[in-house]
Amino acid sequence: MRLLHTSDWHVGRTFHGADTLDALSDALGAIARIVREHGVDVVLVAGDVYDSAMPSGRHVEALTRALQEIRAAGAAIVLSSGNHDSAARLGANAGFASAGGLHLSTRALEPDSWRIELADEHGPVHVFALPYLEPVAMRSSLPEAGIANQADAIGWAMSAVRASLSASPARSVVLAHCFAAGVAEPEDDAPRDITAGGLDVVPLARFDGIDYVALGHLHSRQELAPAVRYSGAPLHYSFRERSPQRGGWLVDLDADGLAQVAWVDLPVPRALTTIEGELGALLADESLAGTEDDWVRALLTDRLRPIDAMRRLQERWPHAAEVQWTGGQDAPAAELRARLARRSEAEVVGDFLEHVRAGVGPSEAEAALVRDGLARVAAAEVAQ
């Protein structure tokens, strides 16, 4: 069986305010071509199908077209909900869709609903598509499970997966939407904390014994182990995303389990380029010839803030999307903004308390209250 591991489609997301739907539709159309050219049996989408819990009509139509093209190319589809999705909306009509080869997994508290039973000439393959598991919501629904964080939530889910495999042995694939141990420092725009209280990492050991683990949540590809990988998003959604490549993992299963994994590229519609220097020098820099059609981020080092910098940049680079002034007297403020961008919400609240209390930060009890409050807000947003 050949699988194509993708994730984080984020249908409806913009790039620094620019609409990406046409570019994403092209990328998803390329997935259908990959299915035909490489003989893909199943396309996996490991969470964050939409960028919003309430996608617009045009975004729903775009996703529907993409899924229809992939099915017409000959692949079944297994799709799980992520933290950006509304599980209830995404999972509507899941029972009906499965009859047509589109398997939607969105019910976090119903482990039996995660298993999709597939088969090839070597026998059964069970795909367990774990929806995004919100620890706060699970704590209130499963108080006896002792779920405090994402690692606990995935541990609870994997116990159910192993019980299912024990009762019905088969080669196994798991989809999960989380931070797993061994990830590089997340991109600045990535969800730094899926429980809003510090980077909540799932140990790789939680996935032991599974033939392949298809992870989502990070937007750049990463290999944590031969059988545990992130595919990243099909488009760049920020200058801070680490990997220039966009694509997915072709995963081959043989009679014994995982046989091989290979990367397959998706087209990159517009490259990302960061330029740095004084505005006038950049506009005249001949070494930057050929970058005019790129998405451009400009880091301006002028001693005084340039007037109308974005308009002037866009005269040469029509797709200039971000400009930062790093020179002059505002440099400390820029450094402060950069430091804040690397800190979680709970850490920012702690810093504020330490500032207003003249160096006295939150107590353990106060920090726990802050984490719990932020997590409740995050859970409410996910449930919308």
Rank of each mutant, 00 (worst) to 15 (best):
residue 60 V to T: 10
residue 40 V to Q: 06
residue 52 S to K: 10
residue 68 Q to C: 09
residue 35 V to R: 07
residue 38 H to N: 12
residue 88 A to T: 10
residue 121 E to M: 07
residue 47 G to M: 06
residue 110 E to V: 12
residue 95 G to N: 12
residue 114 W to G: 08
residue 35 V to A: 10
residue 60 V to P: 13
residue 91 G to D: 08
residue 109 L to Q: 08
residue 115 R to W: 13
residue 97 A to P: 07
residue 64 T to W: 01
residue 69 E to I: 00
residue 96 F to G: 03
residue 129 A to Q: 04
residue 54 M to I: 10
residue 66 A to W: 05
residue 99 A to E: 15
residue 37 E to T: 13
residue 97 A to R: 03
residue 125 V to Y: 11
residue 117 E to T: 14
residue 106 T to H: 13
residue 84 H to M: 07
residue 65 R to L: 14
residue 83 N to W: 01
residue 95 G to F: 07
residue 107 R to H: 12
residue 106 T to P: 15
residue 77 I to G: 03
residue 108 A to N: 09
residue 59 H to M: 05
residue 45 V to C: 13
residue 74 G to Y: 10
residue 87 A to W: 00
residue 34 I to E: 08
residue 95 G to L: 13
residue 110 E to G: 05
residue 88 A to N: 06
residue 71 R to M: 08
residue 129 A to N: 04
residue 62 A to V: 02
residue 71 R to T: 05
residue 43 V to W: 03
residue 93 N to G: 01
residue 66 A to V: 03
residue 75 A to G: 07
residue 57 G to H: 10
residue 113 S to V: 07
residue 99 A to I: 14
residue 95 G to T: 11
residue 37 E to V: 05
residue 111 P to S: 09
residue 93 N to V: 04
residue 44 L to W: 06
residue 56 S to C: 00
residue 64 T to F: 06
residue 129 A to C: 06
residue 127 V to D: 07
residue 70 I to D: 05
residue 101 G to Y: 12
residue 76 A to G: 14
residue 113 S to D: 15
residue 86 S to L: 04
residue 103 H to R: 03
residue 39 G to A: 01
residue 75 A to V: 01
residue 101 G to L: 11
residue 82 G to C: 02
residue 33 R to D: 15
residue 42 V to Y: 07
residue 122 H to P: 12
residue 69 E to P: 08
residue 95 G to A: 13
residue 48 D to R: 05
residue 113 S to K: 04
residue 77 I to N: 00
residue 99 A to M: 15
residue 120 D to N: 08
residue 91 G to V: 02
residue 37 E to K: 03
residue 102 L to F: 03
residue 74 G to E: 12
residue 90 L to E: 03
residue 75 A to T: 01
residue 92 A to I: 01
residue 39 G to I: 01
residue 56 S to H: 11
residue 57 G to T: 12
residue 112 D to K: 08
residue 121 E to G: 12
residue 97 A to I: 01
residue 85 D to M: 02
residue 112 D to M: 08
residue 30 A to P: 08
residue 63 L to K: 01
residue 128 F to H: 15
residue 36 R to D: 10
residue 71 R to N: 04
residue 33 R to E: 15
residue 123 G to L: 09
residue 71 R to C: 04
residue 43 V to E: 02
residue 102 L to E: 06
residue 74 G to Q: 09
residue 46 A to R: 02
residue 87 A to I: 03
residue 32 A to N: 04
residue 51 D to T: 05
residue 35 V to W: 10
residue 73 A to Y: 09
residue 122 H to I: 05
residue 43 V to A: 04
residue 90 L to R: 00
residue 114 W to N: 07
residue 31 I to R: 06
residue 48 D to K: 02
residue 83 N to Y: 02
residue 117 E to Q: 13
residue 105 S to L: 15
residue 59 H to S: 11
residue 95 G to P: 13
residue 33 R to I: 00
